[in-house]
Amino acid sequence: MNRQTLSKFLLVCSIAFGMAVLGSEASPNPNGSHEHETDDRGVLQAIAQAPAKTREWKNPYEDQPDAVLAGKKLFMQHCAECHGAHARGIGRALNLHLPYVQRATPGELEWFLRNGNVWAGMPSWSGLPEQRRWQIVSYLKSLH
C-alpha cells in the first residue's frame, strides 16, 4: 500500500466516520428543557427479555432513603444526558415514569441496566458496580 493509496483510504474513512458522528442517534438535552414523553415499545420488549429468575431478585437497598439519594446522584451523572433531568425521556430515550417501566421488577431493571439495549443505543452499564446499579433502581422506583 503506497502513501497515496493510504491517504485516500484514510480520507474515505474519515468522511465515513464524520457521517457516522453526524448521523448517529439524536441525544437529548441535558437540562431537560425539551423533554417529552416517549413510548418506546422496543425498550419494553428489551426489558421483557430479562430472564425469569431476575424477577425474583431483591433490591438490597429497598426502602433505604439514602439509596434513593445516591441513585439520583448516579442518575444525574450517567443517565440524565439521555433521559433528561426529570427522567421523562427525550427523543428515543425512554420516559422512565411510564407504567410499564414502573411495573418492571427491580431485578428486571437491574438486569436491563447491566445489559443495556446496545444495538438500539442504550449502553450497557456493567462497568458500574452492582451496588450502584441497585441504587439507580431505587431511584427509578421512587419516581412513581
Binding site: 448517529s24 442517534e25 441525544s27 441535558p30 448516579l74 444525574m76 451523572q77 450517567h78 440524565a80 444526558e81 443505543g121 449502553p123 450497557s124 452499564w125 456493567s126 462497568g127 458500574l128
Partner: peptide, 24 residues
C-alpha cells in the same frame, strides 16, 4: 462541557476492557 458527566472507565493505560465510550 456540562456540569455533570460520568463514564464507566477502567483505569488502565495499556489494557483495554469491554467498556466502550457512551454513544455521543
Amino acid at each position: 462541557i456540562p456540569q455533570r458527566a460520568g463514564a464507566q472507565e477502567t483505569p488502565y493505560f495499556v489494557t483495554y476492557s469491554h467498556h466502550l465510550e457512551e454513544p455521543g
